[in-house]
């Protein structure tokens, strides 16, 4: 782990307890914020920070929140390289590499307007093919999508 934590990131405004999402492609930084943070959360956002591994990267710090595996894996659809740092007492106590999930329930709307999930009270369900590049398929209408087409419910 040579390029694990870029130190300055934590020194500038650290958080005592919460989660730091590191190694986000800069363009998707705000998307990650949208995916993970609630209205009341205290969030620190860094975009275009220097990174040895990625050149430029985004960093998001969300105070007082620890996420479930399903929640963090959702961001792998946009930031497959992201690392999740769980912070307690100002220190990294756990480091998690995100994984592309096999399926997702709820969260996103199906982009197909003719899909039954957009007309009836149904929880959306997507399956993710693990091939590279991966693609997302709606369990109901069977259409394939890329992450950028997905909108949060």
């Amino acid at each position: 782990m040579t390029d694990s934590v870029d130190k300055p990131t934590y020194e500038v405004q650290g958080i005592e307890y919460g989660t730091v999402i590191d190694h986000i492609p800069s363009a998707y930084t705000l998307k990650v914020v949208e995916l993970l943070s609630g209205l009341e959360d205290k969030v620190l956002i860094g975009i275009n920070f220097d990174s040895k591994r990625m050149g430029r990267k985004g960093v998001v710090k969300i105070a007082n929140r620890i996420f479930t595996e399903d929640e963090v894996n959702m961001i792998a659809l946009f930031a497959p390289q992201a690392t999740i740092n769980v912070i307690e007492d100002g220190k990294v106590v756990q480091k998690i590499q995100v994984k592309i999930p096999k399926s997702m329930h709820g969260s996103f709307r199906c982009p197909n307007p003719q899909c039954i999930t957009n007309h009836q009270d149904v929880v959306t369900h997507f399956l993710i093919d693990q091939d590279q590049p991966f693609f997302i398929r709606c369990y109901y209408c069977e259409r394939q999508f890329v992450s950028d087409e997905l909108k949060l419910i």
């Binding site: 709606c138 369990y139 109901y140 209408c141 069977e142």
Partner: peptide, 26 residues
Amino acid sequence: HPLEGAARLASESSSLPVINAGDGTN
């Protein structure tokens, strides 16, 4: 059914076998 995925939803709503006779363009 004219909507895509309707037959899949129907099959989840019932313990009976459901046969899809066409769901939109799916």
